[in-house]
Design a protein around this nucleic acid. Structure first.
Length: 423
RNA sequence: GGAGAGGUGUCUGAGUGGUCGAAAGAGCACGCCUGGAAAGUGUGUAUACGCCAAAAGUGUAUCGAGGGUUCGAAUCCCUCCCUCUCCGCCA
């Protein structure tokens, strides 16, 4: 959520930045400013009437104690009008605040100055490409056929017990999942992240805190009996660990990592590009999250991006880094780098990680502050990144590493899988 | 699921209608003391919003949340949420 005071003081800049994100309702900016004016004047009125009423109450108390009941009653006679006015102004203030809030949450985060303008994925900027694109023989198989051939993943069984998009991993397929999770967590720990293991369902306040609600309500599974949402990413429970928290300056940066399954409804996305592991309703992911001082968040973003790239390099996967254009970025992000690996059999790039700086956008919803050098509270910056999401990594690994004698496991994973080949 | 207890500041914990944003203690910060430390001692120590160019200052709100009674609510009433204990069930 953007801060009203910032919008008020930087109207032109806000409009300009929103345009980079192709924001369709710039009128909201002026509406927010107007509502805020109204909010402030209403509060000023309310405060002054309340102050009068408070001082009258105090007088009454003093008089009663002094035994001057008549004088107290005389003041009491005048309080009716104030009460009415306080109630009316209070109701008005609540209504204005609600309306302001409703408009405010519709404003997306402002993109960083390095974010290219654009509205489609084609307009994302390729920052770098790394690793050799493997040449596969003509009879190379896509991962869903490899998964069937080597009995690694059973999509049909998943359909039977749950539904499409809920795969069943078997044998070496299951072990590969476990190996990747452990590998990613160990790498994160080496990079200084403290591991947490989290609830897989969150309440509404948490969904709001990180920006899933109300914007992306339809993307989450909702457990109505208990008013809980299945997490679409570990970002939600991890970042919400710090909701309503004021950190000491020396507690920054906060670095956490965690593995969780992720649940996404992915409503409306069907077709060839969702085959196999390309898009699932449930998948596994290791997430890294940082809460940092605003002065450092872009350096940290770069470091997180490099951490993710390091994982891909260790796994020997060719990848590229995209700086997302304004229109392709999420509602909440100020800057996002997507990492994509080259799927040799599908001949396309697959997104495996997204590293974002949210600046204060989540922090303002979360009320996540720290005490700055002047001793005042200040909103922190939050960042997160997938490190990494498993399914497309598995897809790419299977496809790119397929040989005549089977699928070769990358060396760094062998200590975790305890097998070198899937054959 | 049944029965009971309770939610106060960083923590412990007082407070059953007015001077309570809230005693006291602990913790923390700064100072004094000390060769240094401990002890001792002094001061300070919530958040948000408004007014003000800003600081200073000042106003308002906040004692789980929301509503009500009252001139006045941490304190009384109602609703909801949460936590704990016992019983039952159970990985």
């Amino acid at each position: 959520m953007l801060q009203v005071s910032y919008i008020r003081d930087n109207r032109e800049q806000v409009l300009e930045r929103l345009a980079v994100k192709n924001f369709k309702q710039p009128i909201l900016v002026d509406e927010v400013i107007q509502l805020d004016d109204k909010r402030r004047s209403t509060q000023t009125q309310l405060d002054s009437v309340s102050a009068q009423a408070n001082s009258a109450s105090k007088q009454i108390g003093d008089l009663m104690r002094a035994g001057k009941k008549d004088e107290a009653d005389a003041i009491k006679a005048n309080t009716g009008a104030w009460k009415e006015e306080i109630k009316q102004l209070g109701d008005l203030l609540t209504a204005v605040e609600e309306e302001l809030q409703q408009k405010l949450v519709l404003l997306p985060n402002l993109p960083h100055s390095s974010v290219p303008k654009g509205s489609t994925p084609e307009e994302n900027e390729v920052v770098l490409t790394n690793g050799a694109i493997p040449e596969l023989p003509a009879n190379a198989l896509p991962h869903w056929e490899l998964a069937a051939k080597y009995n690694l993943i059973d999509f049909e069984l998943g359909v039977k017990i749950t539904g499409a998009g809920f795969p069943v991993y078997k044998g070496k397929g299951a072990k590969l999942q476990r190996a990747l999770i452990s590998f990613f967590l160990d790498e994160a720990e080496k990079a200084g992240y403290d591991e947490v293991m989290l609830p897989l369902m969150v309440n509404e306040a948490s969904g709001f805190g990180t920006g899933q609600l109300p914007d992306k309500e339809g993307q989450m599974y909702f457990v109505g009996n208990d008013n809980l949402y299945l997490i679409p990413t570990a970002e939600v429970p991890i970042t919400n660990l710090y909701r309503d928290v004021i950190l000491k300056a020396d507690e920054l940066p906060v670095k956490n990592c965690g593995y969780t399954p992720c649940f996404r409804r992915e409503a409306g996305s069907y077709g060839a590009h969702v085959r196999g592991l390309n898009r699932l309703h449930q998948f596994d992911k290791v997430e890294i999250v940082q809460v940092v001082h605003p002065d450092h968040s872009y350096d940290v973003h770069e470091k997180m991006s490099l951490h993710v790239q390091g994982l891909l390099q260790k796994l020997g996967l060719p990848y590229r880094v995209l700086r997302l254009c304004g229109g392709d970025m999420s509602f909440t992000a100020a800057l996002t780098h997507d990492m994509e690996t080259w799927s040799a059999a599908q001949q396309r790039w697959l997104e495996v990680s997204s590293v974002s700086n949210f600046e204060t956008f989540q922090a303002s919803r979360l009320k996540l502050r720290f005490r700055n050098a002047e001793g005042k509270t200040q909103l922190a910056h939050t960042l997160n990144g997938s490190a990494l999401a498993l399914p497309r990594i598995v897809a790419t690994l299977l496809e790119n590493n397929q040989t005549e004698k089977g699928i070769k496991i990358p060396e760094v994973l062998v200590p975790y899988t305890r097998f070198e080949w899937i054959d």
